[in-house]
Write a protein that binds this DNA or RNA. Sequence first.
DNA 1: AAGTGGTCTAGACCACGAT
DNA 2: TCGTGGTCTAGACCACTTA
Lengths: 258, 258
Amino acid sequence: MAAKYQLIAGSLREEIRAGTYAQGDKLPTEAALRQKWSVAIGTVRSALALLQAEGLIEPDSPRGWFVRRIEHQTYRPQSDGRTLKSLSENEPWVQQILKEGREPSQSLEVEIAEPPAAVAERLRLKPGEQTAIRRRLRFINGAPVNIADSYYPLWMVQGTEVIIPTDIPEGVSRVLTEQGYTQMSAIDEFEVRIATPEEQARLNMSTGQPVAEHRCTTFTSEGQPVRCSVHVLPGDRNLIVYERTWDPHAESDPKESK
Amino acid sequence: MAAKYQLIAGSLREEIRAGTYAQGDKLPTEAALRQKWSVAIGTVRSALALLQAEGLIEPDSPRGWFVRRIEHQTYRPQSDGRTLKSLSENEPWVQQILKEGREPSQSLEVEIAEPPAAVAERLRLKPGEQTAIRRRLRFINGAPVNIADSYYPLWMVQGTEVIIPTDIPEGVSRVLTEQGYTQMSAIDEFEVRIATPEEQARLNMSTGQPVAEHRCTTFTSEGQPVRCSVHVLPGDRNLIVYERTWDPHAESDPKESK
DNA sequence: AAGTGGTCTAGACCACGAT
DNA sequence: TCGTGGTCTAGACCACTTA
């Protein structure tokens, strides 16, 4: 920890944690830091780059360096189906989170194409089989909050409203049920990684910032995959929340996992 | 995208995606890239720093730059209680994930102290109230995979095995049930962010890499918080998996969320 | 001993936004 | 016009690993 740039970064990090610089505040200019620490400009920039990589600050050239804001929207995979009100009613901090639920706007595009390999695998498609893709980009206050692309086996939705780029009353699930494919179960996967350059552009993120990629695959009671959704959630704008209950009549109690 | 360092980074990124350099492979040396592109060494380093921030490569001085490996362990919050076998039996890719479940080793420390503010809030503690903390660091093949710290209100576990730093047969939950606090429900929260310098050190991560912070709060049927666990999961080593089913007798069907 | 990345210097010119 | 960060140059010495 002897390197100068690390000392500078450590000092700034501490000042940010202590509140000397609050969210959205402007840091001293590079030239000011250079003078204060008597180092070359490159050294100051190494320090700032380190804090940027930690997600603490971001540049807004030519205005300067600023402490990043983080504002979490609640992301509730379970409310895809219904809301679990009973549980959360007890919890003020959950209530508060739920109240934030401003209604987002969104863009929608529909496309028919081969899905990525990960999606094809989950929908159990043969190589070359096509899917209907509904691509949504969700905004709150004009700022993109997440990407949500849903993939359906083409044979399942051919000739239905699903392949028309409009909102569907009561949702796509109603149409799928009418086709005889009622979704009865789902598997959610979350992968945590840095945003790709494409995602950075589409979601207006700064480089090096993390996202959660949420893949949700739904099934009929017979185990037929119906839909695979891929959601990309920027870490600084989303808080993922699940609620669970244990069946009082089950044979085993919840245990501390080993 | 005209900057030289971005062109160099783009070229390397493409080669990595195309498989020219596979996971674990060594990239050309900085000197070699400098010659190939006829730029100053600082420019090459900007390019490498960009790819490092994207999580694609990492330095292993003085050996060189290497394509990062990602190896996901499955992280299943629900198996805290029981396993949901029925659903996954249909899914080969889930089966495969489950099979990977090599038994991890772990370290355990117990401490009695005030919890962080976020935990105190979730356990509904008054300022100054203390908790029993069981800190675990989990390893697979000697490599740390995640941090798992569990907090219990001290009054609830005073005088029990919970405050002794040994593994507890059948888990802490058995003890809590004996004390009259059976956990019946839980709220899971996931926050996605860059690891702090402390976490980087504890989990042997490189700088700028993302983690999921999983906070799990459990409750009795009366809504009394029993435990709050904080898990820190490095993104490149964990894949979070949930399974859900919909009640066939419920009034509403799963819908595409708006 | 040779080669690697880690750190640092001391400049330079540029585009862009605010004034 | 001035100040800002963005990019780039052309070096330097260091610690460390491997041969």
